[in-house]
Simulated scan of single mutants.
Amino acid sequence: MALVTVSGFPCSGKTTRVLQLKQFLEERLQDPAYTGPQLTVSILSDDDLKIGRQVYNGPVLASVPMTDSRSEKPARQALFTAMQRQMNHNTILILDGMNYIKGFRYQMYCAARELKVRVATVYVVATKELCREWNAARVDGNAYSAETLENLLLRYEEPSSMVRWDSPLFTIPWSDRDVPADDIWKAITEGNVKPPNAGTQAVPKAPTDALRTLEHTTTTMVSAIMAEQAASGGGLGGVVHLSLNNGTSGTAKPRINLPARSITLSELQRIKRQFVTVHKKAITLGTTEKGAVDWSEESIADKFASYIEENLKP
Rank of each mutant, 00 (worst) to 15 (best):
9 F>L: 14
12 S>N: 07
19 L>E: 12
20 Q>H: 14
27 E>W: 06
29 L>K: 10
29 L>Y: 08
33 A>P: 09
34 Y>G: 05
41 V>P: 01
50 K>W: 11
52 G>V: 13
52 G>K: 12
61 L>I: 11
63 S>A: 13
67 T>P: 03
69 S>W: 03
69 S>T: 07
69 S>Q: 13
70 R>C: 01
74 P>D: 07
74 P>R: 13
76 R>S: 11
77 Q>L: 11
80 F>Q: 06
84 Q>Y: 03
85 R>Y: 07
94 I>S: 05
95 L>Y: 05
98 M>Q: 04
101 I>S: 10
103 G>F: 15
110 C>I: 08
118 R>V: 02
119 V>R: 01
124 V>C: 06
133 E>S: 03
146 A>T: 15
151 N>L: 09
154 L>E: 14
155 R>S: 01
155 R>Y: 03
157 E>V: 11
165 W>N: 01
177 R>L: 04
186 K>V: 13
187 A>N: 08
188 I>K: 05
196 P>F: 00
198 A>E: 08
199 G>I: 05
199 G>A: 06
206 A>E: 01
213 T>V: 08
216 H>R: 11
217 T>A: 09
246 N>T: 09
256 I>C: 09
259 P>C: 03
266 S>C: 15
272 K>T: 02
272 K>M: 12
277 T>L: 13
279 H>P: 04
282 A>R: 15
285 L>I: 09
304 F>L: 03
311 N>I: 10
313 K>C: 09
